[in-house]
Nucleic acid binder design. Structure first.
Lengths: 233, 233
DNA sequence: TCGCAGATTTAGGCACGCGTAATTCCGGGA
DNA sequence: TCCCGGAATTACGCGTGCCTAAATCTGCGA
């Protein structure tokens, strides 16, 4: 036996913490202990303890009772994990026939085990993709990540055209459902109605003939879209 | 986050122990604490402690001061790890352009992270190979493994033809060296000399013109061959 | 300004898996 | 049979990362 514990040099837990902190940070707001605890499904005091260690390692900045922010090296490590996760998901989907609803768990384990070398080879084999199967941008090797200007379908104005660009990889049921409607990343459709008080959104999907579907508010809120200003097909 | 700690349900350490015990067991002889400690590069008392836990989990049978043997479920789990390791090595070599001397460490990490599903898909993509790139037989999904009748090159009679069938994946230097000689699994050659007192073995490699090479005893002992009884090219 | 709810941290504990030091066991030679 | 060296185990301790219970802080509404 001779392999490193973990390809990145950090423990599996550390990698998980960095990734969720990155994801919860949005645009720089401090991340609460409780949010981390919920995302990782562990108790809040456990997070307090771990945050202390992360802070001593210089990966996060911790203001007691206020929250944590990633430091430069914390963010770099987090983006590395995000890159790994998304490349693995893309690879499994494109090269090994996985469906987009079943890659998340597998990637969640593999992201801790793959080396930079392997990620590089996977990316190469895929032609250095910019997005994963759910539309999420893949950070580059040197930690650049594209910022997307997206709108939840629940907020796209009625009457405009929209294109599905991004959906979370976390909910297989949701992914299977929207796939069953013919909705995947890149599909354009018309928003033809929305009911008030978190009512459903009605969209018209392309096809012969076009098909109308009603999507619940919660679902519509999970579908990040480009709004294509302008007229209707 | 929602993935299991480890695809098999056992901890990474447990998986490592089971694999080395399997490999050290040969044909059923009890495995000594010290042998495990050396293989895993950890201290002997640590092994004693772990063996106790493995034994309580029903994975090994431990006779104090005598050694351990895998139980049925221990052997099944070990063979699963061996299958994972060898399929991953084969996949990396065949599909991602790795050389045979660089796959071991990567596989050592990945074998703990891949699911049965993924191993199945990799095996499928490879056409269900029976051997890994180093010639080691790949256990089937249900835990069958082929027994090979092989002879170390250091014991193949002078004058016979032999074919390289198996070499350990542990030593990248050795693998690179023999590859540089044109020796890989499946290559046949003639054994034309061997010096006494652990002296070198001389082989004649096919080619135009044939090439003779002298291999040190230790190296020759690491090359497991089929002896092709009979005459010489 | 006070008090309360909720978030956070501290206190104390546990399992895992590793280490070193000290002790015990086993087998072979005298 | 005794003794001795090497193997194994026991005793004790450490860091990681999780837990629950108890204390503390923060901000908001009365």
């Amino acid at each position: 036996m001779s392999a490193e514990a973990n390809a990145s040099g950090y423990s599996r837990s550390t990698e998980d913490y960095l990734k969720v902190i990155y994801e919860l940070e949005g645009r720089g707001a401090p991340v609460q202990t409780r949010a981390i605890a919920e995302a990782l499904e562990i108790a809040a005091p456990s997070v307090s303890g771990m945050v202390k260690r992360l802070s001593e390692s210089g990966l996060v900045e911790h203001v007691p009772y206020r929250g944590v922010r990633l430091t430069g090296s914390g963010r770099r490590a987090a983006l590395k994990m995000v890159r790994r996760h998304r490349i693995v998901e893309t690879y499994l989907t494109q090269k090994l026939g996985y469906d987009w609803d079943s890659v998340h768990d597998e990637a969640e384990r593999l992201e801790h085990a793959v080396s930079d070398e392997l990620i590089g080879r996977m990316a190469m084999a895929l032609g250095n993709p910019r997005y994963d199967p759910h539309g999420a941008p893949i950070p580059t090797k040197d930690g650049q990540i594209e910022e997307q200007e997206l709108l939840p379908l629940s907020e796209v104005p009625v009457g405009s055209m929209a294109e599905l660009r991004l959906v979370s990889d976390r909910d297989p049921e949701l992914l299977r459902y929207i796939a069953s409607l013919g909705l995947k990343v890149g599909v354009a459709f018309e928003v033809i109605g929305r009911q008030p008080f978190k009512g459903p959104v009605t969209i018209r999907l392309p096809g012969k003939p076009p098909r109308d579907e009603n999507l619940g508010h919660e679902l519509a809120a999970a579908l990040q879209c480009w709004e294509r200003e302008g007229e209707v097909g």
